[in-house]
Design a protein around this nucleic acid. Sequence first.
DNA 1: ACATTAAGTGATT
DNA 2: AATCACTTAATGT
Length: 217
Amino acid sequence: MDTQEVILREKLSDYYTNIFEEELIDEIVKVGFIEKIKSGNLMIDIGEDMTHIPLILNGVVKIIRKEKDGEELVLYFLERGDTCAISFVNCINRKKSIFKGVVENDMEAIFLPVEKIDDWLVRFKSWRFFIIDSYHFRLIEMVESIDSLAFMNMNQRVFKYLTDKAKINRDVDLTITHQQIADDLNTSRVVVTRLLKQLHEDGKIYSTRNKIKVLDF
DNA sequence: ACATTAAGTGATT
DNA sequence: AATCACTTAATGT
């Protein structure tokens, strides 16, 4: 067994070995490769061909929907144990990515060639389960995202955004500017500033320049 | 000390 | 909730 396979096996061992059967792990270490992407970099952009799908080992990827004129909206975050739901559709009908994925926190993932997905779906029960479960989870997050757009006012959306982010980072102290929040929610900085001031006064957050502490969970 | 970037605010739509 | 126009505060060089 070569060293690359040993490293992959090691990387999978903290999480994925619990959900994948041994034979599947054997296949993954044969065809997968590890890639690390630093915070702020693009993982995938809209329109790009997807040749591989990621199994996220650690870090966070922000999934964004983008309008033609550059307007953006954050849909959800991917973290350890997640993969890109869109990539499954992709591997079946060979389309291009409809979302943009930006690395939020330094990320490490095992990339798997899409050709294997089909094959594994019929051969491995654990893979089937993983894919369906993951798809299901993405759908729920998408519905949540629609709910928040349709039924929540900006005030609630900002607070949801902050608590979601705190959960994902496993830290209530966030380093973020008002402008970045505004970009992610597709609103203006002035609006965010005013809403954050309200949340601050209500005791739900504590905010200073570049920093926000989420107090009320 | 100066320039740059982030945040706060009143008025208007 | 968005935009404008402007001020004030924090930070980097």
